[in-house]
Design a protein around this nucleic acid. Structure first.
Lengths: 135, 135
DNA sequence: CTTATAAATGTTATATTATTACATAGTGTT
DNA sequence: AACACTATGTAATAATATAACATTTATAAG
């Protein structure tokens, strides 16, 4: 059988895998230097090693950056493997972040045209409010 | 006559006014330290003075932060005086940023409910693509 | 298999963005 | 005047991110 092309494209290097695993098993968004602390025992010693892996993981859609928090979460939405259409809800008290997957929302935004009739290739949407627990 | 309550609420202090004026007359989003350089001749010497003014200006909706760029632009949308519903288009080549004011979009997002039926009090949306000139 | 190329890594230094802590001054209200 | 609130000034430092350069590993083509 072997590795199909599509799997290969998304196969991760050593550092990428270490950092992805950490983010993926985290219940909250992780910041770059938090990640750095947690992977130092695995031999990743410098910020740049972390940022490079993060950049790549974002590029291939395995993780997303929460821009308002400078933090990263794993993608849990099979439809955004290419990081070009992202939406999140953020609790302003406990800082819980959830990726929103709404077919209606993504369709609406992907097709949105501005006044000049211009469409966009990418978007990021962050909603803020209070999560269930904090209400 | 005098100053009405609503005007007063939005009246700016000295530093806030200096910094708002700079951002307002800029054709592009300004970063905090760019602002700092440009207001040093007016006596604002420290980063914190800039950040405090920026915080306040964002809070009262006179400016918005472009989260993906860590930069600030003046609000040109009379409907978002309280910074709680913002949408921008960002050119990935020339970095031109435009505030989007679309009644349809803001209505859609303000009324958006997630899977749990939860509504949000605030959102920020950033679209990416190529502007007219760069296409 | 070897050569060429691209992708990833390692390392040091530094740039950029933002906040903490503490002291002082102004503004509006009662 | 006394009070509360907002804004300012200043120094130090924390947190986030990139530049520059050397080396190694993976991939694909000949």
């Amino acid at each position: 059988m072997g590795i199909s092309k599509i799997d290969k494209m998304h196969s991760l290097s050593k550092n990428q895998q270490i950092i992805f695993d950490l983010i993926d098993k985290s219940s909250e968004p992780l910041k770059a230097y938090t990640i750095l602390f947690n992977v130092q025992k695995k031999g990743i010693k410098a910020p740049l090693q972390v940022y490079r892996a993060l950049d790549k993981l974002v590029e291939i859609g395995k993780i997303h950056k929460i821009e308002s928090r400078n933090a990263f979460i794993a993608c849990h939405n099979s439809s955004c493997q290419v990081a070009k259409a992202t939406a999140f809800s953020i609790c302003e008290i406990c800082e819980k972040v959830t990726e929103i997957s709404s077919a209606g929302l993504s369709k609406y935004l992907a097709n949105f045209k501005d006044k000049d009739g211009m469409k966009y290739s990418k978007y990021n949407l962050e909603f803020f409010g209070l999560c269930k627990k904090c209400r």
